[in-house]
Write a protein that binds this DNA or RNA. Structure first.
Lengths: 241, 241
DNA sequence: ATTATATTAGAACAAGTTTTCAATGTCAAT
DNA sequence: ATTGACATTGAAAACTTGTTCTAATATAAT
């Protein structure tokens, strides 16, 4: 016993599979069993049925029982996934990739001596100078992207935050901050913008700590410190010469 | 005479057209007339046939006479062309977007006291720890992406280059540099890695200038300075607390 | 040779499916 | 009210299509 077990697919099955794909491509709907039989020069519908069952067993096609022209090709010989599936797959890929590339409005500059420009809430950046494209993976998980905006740093006043002229900082709009956040603040007494680590000392004072540990912190009363956003990412591009 | 001439399509025709598309998407083959009728709550097949003829007249569908489930949608209400064309369009979109999001291998760490790990040329990073996703727009025009690699900065030795612990630097492989490039170099005499601006003084010496202008440059003989790459981008991520 | 299984044919049947037709309802314009 | 194009119905007819059954033939292992 044990006759040759169908290694792979027979010639006819292959031909049927190809025909299914080409017919669908050409007509927009699948062929009937008799049409298949005609193509492989087989008169009897039962034989075609026989082959189709094989193809189904092997996972190449799917059949909707008793329904006319209801053969669906799941995969082809070369592993290609035809049509619907390929389309779906492409679609999800588009969505995924598109989702992973975020456009953040570059709404202005930030420097020591002038206030931080703020984007209008919700009304998404019509007047943005340009946008900065950033991969989602570089940003904190699931930030609402509408809360993000970018500023270009002007001048060297942020050097103690390790941020230099020309750097791009990406911020999340915020009025309050947690201890340890890198924040953009406006100091009312000093009339100055700065980027520092934020620590709320429980005595009504706020300590603003430079990133560079060798430098001294700034300590101000809470009401003199206006938080404008949390820094989520800093970008520094270098031109190649 | 001249009764209301069908302006556009009737509600039912529209519904049928939508159904045709969604059914085909879902099942992989077109619906029968009865199934259509069922969907729009119409018992008589002849009425559905009537609507289908209209749709055909209007050029929305094509029918294979007497053949079961042989309706092909040519165009939809919003002018979209289903199937193959949509697939092609989606595919190109995928390719375009995917092209704008680049995966750069993160191949190790960089610190003052140990050499710069280098990726094998061409052999694309099998052993990369992970990858950094970056928008093409942030990189210099048309860099060969295979020449790019990323390193995570360890320690605070690069502070004078305004680069801190945890920062990610993206480099382009290079053995020589132009004046003004920010480069990653290995100093053989000092046994040290550093990131500095590169200036070749024509007297056989190289001046390595910190980004922070208040600091003093390092000057070394040309042969003691091994350029490993040009810095093209620095990323600093902040966790939100 | 024998046996079990794989392959093929043909026909008949049942179910699925589209067409056709005659009849009737609807509605705006005459 | 009458007309006539459009819309709708139900049912029968005609055709397409998938399934099943029986039987015949081939093929490989025993």
């Amino acid at each position: 016993m044990m006759a040759r077990k169908s290694e792979g697919l027979g010639e006819r099955s292959k031909k049927i599979l190809e025909f299914l794909v080409s017919y669908q491509e050409k007509h927009g709907y699948p062929p009937s069993i008799r049409e298949i039989g005609n193509h492989i020069h087989v008169e009897s519908t039962s034989l075609v049925d026989y082959y189709l069952n094989q193809l189904q067993e092997a996972g190449y096609i799917e059949r909707g029982g008793r329904i006319s022209r209801s053969i669906r090709v799941l995969r082809t010989l070369d592993g290609q996934t035809p049509f619907k599936q390929a389309f779906e797959s492409a679609k999800t890929t588009v969505e995924r990739v598109a989702h992973e590339l975020i456009s953040i409005p570059l709404i202005g500059r930030i420097g020591a001596s002038y206030p931080i420009p703020m984007p209008e809430s919700d009304v998404p950046y019509f007047d943005s100078l340009s946008t900065v494209e950033v991969a989602q993976s570089l940003l904190p998980n699931k930030e609402k992207i509408t809360d993000l905006f970018a500023l270009e740093v002007e001048g060297e006043s942020m050097i103690d935050a390790m941020i230099n002229d020309g750097d791009i900082v990406i911020l999340k709009r915020a009025e309050v901050a947690q201890n340890g956040d890198m924040v953009a603040v406006w100091l009312t007494r000093d009339n100055e913008t700065t980027l520092k680590y934020y620590y709320n000392e429980r005595n009504g004072y706020v300590r603003l700590q430079p990133a560079n540990r060798t430098m001294q912190p700034i300590i101000r009363p809470e009401k003199e410190v206006q938080v404008r956003g949390k820094v989520v990412l800093v970008l520094r591009q270098f031109k190649s010469h």
